[in-house]
């Protein structure tokens, strides 16, 4: 029969592999043997957080902290809970306290960086990611944040960093997620779609990713081909096209009114097309699926 410590280890592993029901059952037995062990509350907090019950998770984390106020893992759990609840200021207070207690922990700096990104403090996030990478250049989360900040700021070296990460650990889910983000950012929609599908196959419950794939498929569909310039240049492209059409039609009307009429008609038809096709195509793709 395994010891309680081994049971707690098993619970942690069950949580890691997403078997929350089994984890809860085993945790119940382990806590019955050692009700005073704060690890039980910590693990219960993790389970509650993964189940989306942040209130219960907070109760467990607070109880665990009361038993062991200096426990890093419990502090990190509390930070995660607060961040998930978007109680940003409280989360910031906790992560700063943790960093002061563990000033060489790159993970904590990466967490703080993520918090700053979520709250749109990009400059501070950039400084924090640099500090995280200085403390531990091989830390996964620090590297992830470094690349994310680079993508946000449009740093030229980011692409190289992503490629390096992919070559080092091509199967890691966070690297693939980063690659997907980077490809979308570069508007390499075909490649992003393939990478996204790979991600979805591993995480079929991810509805946000499913929607993102539908949007990507829309961009790569032949029906969307005439709208590619707009997809490439975005709203700047749309504005430029409008100015171009305005000037061209004005000039044409000065020369020959029929040509101007045709140009105006074509521009109007194009506008209508860009207005009408996305919802129809989206609906079609949702109905039909993404067929190769």
């Amino acid at each position: 029969m395994s010891t309680t410590a081994e049971s707690f280890d098993s619970v942690a592993r069950l949580i890691e592999i997403g078997r929350l029901g089994d984890a809860k059952r085993l945790l119940g037995q382990a806590i019955a043997h050692e009700p005073e062990n704060p690890r039980g509350e910590l693990l219960a907090g993790h389970i509650a957080l993964l189940e989306g019950n942040t209130a219960a998770a907070e109760t467990y984390a607070s109880a665990a902290l009361a038993r062991d106020p200096h426990n890093l893992a419990t502090g990190e759990l509390l930070y995660e809970i607060l961040a998930q609840q978007k109680r940003w200021a409280e989360a910031e207070r906790i992560v700063i306290e943790l960093i002061r207690a563990h000033p060489t922990d790159a993970d904590l700096f990466a967490s703080y960086c993520h918090l700053m990104l979520c709250t749109l403090h990009v400059d501070k996030a950039s400084e924090l990611s640099k500090e995280a990478l200085r403390l531990d250049p091989q830390n996964d989360r620090a590297r992830l944040m470094g690349v994310l900040v680079g993508l946000v700021r449009g740093d030229a070296s980011t692409q190289y960093q992503v490629e390096k990460l992919v070559s080092e650990d091509p199967e890691s889910r966070w690297v693939v997620t980063l690659l997907f983000t980077s490809l979308v950012d570069q508007k390499r929609f075909e490649e992003a779609l393939r990478v996204g599908q790979q991600l979805l196959r591993a995480n079929p419950n991810n509805t946000a990713l499913t929607e993102a794939l539908v949007e990507l498929r829309m961009q790569t569909h032949w029906i969307a081909a005439p709208a590619r310039p707009l997809a490439r240049w975005g709203w700047f492209g749309a504005a430029a096209l409008w100015v171009l059409a305005l000037v061209t039609i004005r000039l044409a009307s000065a020369l020959q009114s029929t040509v101007a009429l045709w140009l105006a008609g074509a521009y109007l038809a194009y506008c209508l097309y860009t207005w009408i096709y996305p919802p129809l195509l989206r609906r079609w793709i949702r109905h039909r699926g993404i067929v190769p």
């Binding site: 393939r194 599908q197 790979q198 979805l200 196959r201 079929p204 419950n205 499913t210 794939l213 539908v214 699926g289 993404i290 190769p292």
Partner: peptide
């Protein structure tokens, strides 16, 4: 429903 996501959108 979950597996439908894989087949329909994930290129199963």
């Amino acid at each position: 429903k979950t597996v439908r996501n894989v087949v329909k959108f994930g290129g199963g």
